[in-house]
């Protein structure tokens, strides 16, 4: 039991550290494409190999670290980004990983539904609620923020899912997948 707990802490810590490093390293690119795709990939790999609780912890802590290190422009976005991360890991867990046998069809379904659901959470939360009600941003800036939380979220969540599916067979040789 203690061994399992130690393993959970170690794996969660490693994935969280890799995720934070990925955010810092890709920051000079000044572009959400690489960072967003890597973050989504690591979240999905975490749920695959460490389980739902571990991935949810990483998904909840990483936006706070990003905001603390100045990588997120507005603090009010943080709860919504956490919700988006939780939704994508939960849906991957439910659709693709909780089954007795993994299947490509359900992996692709999880990829599509996860990306769509994360986008919806971010779009409704940030574009429809935070930007008009909390931040009161003027039109050009509101437009840019809205654009950042629309299409790019679907693209990065989909690419993150695809990368996770490509990387997972290699990673499975080193880490046995989590039992659901």
């Amino acid at each position: 039991m203690r061994n399992q707990h130690a393993r959970w802490v170690a794996q969660t810590g490693i994935f969280l550290a890799v995720l934070v490093v990925a955010q810092i390293v890709t920051r000079p690119l000044g572009n959400s494409f690489v960072t967003g795709s890597l973050v989504n990939m690591l979240l999905i790999l975490a749920v695959m190999f460490c389980g739902l609780s571990s991935a949810a912890t990483i998904g909840a802590i990483s936006p706070i670290i990003a905001a603390l290190t100045g990588m997120s422009p507005f603090w009010p976005f943080v709860p919504v980004i956490i919700a988006g991360n939780l939704v994508i890991v939960f849906l991957w867990h439910i659709i693709a990983l909780r089954r007795t046998e993994r299947s490509k069809a359900f992996d692709i379904l999880a990829l599509a539904v996860g990306a769509g659901a994360k986008f919806l959470v971010l779009y409704i939360g940030i574009v429809n609620l935070i930007v008009p009600l909390v931040l009161n941003l003027a039109e050009p800036q509101a437009g840019v923020v809205s654009a950042a939380f629309s299409w790019p979220q679907i693209v990065t969540a989909s690419i993150g899912g695809l990368l996770a599916l490509l990387v997972s067979p290699v990673l499975a040789k080193a880490i046995p997948p989590a039992k659901s």
Partner: peptide, 28 residues
Amino acid sequence: AFLNPEDLSIDAGHQVYQAKVAIGSGGM
């Protein structure tokens, strides 16, 4: 401009900024 999206003094950066404003302002 791609590496510095906030720098609108570069022509290409300004183009992308306007494209984002257009996409975002269209809403759902």
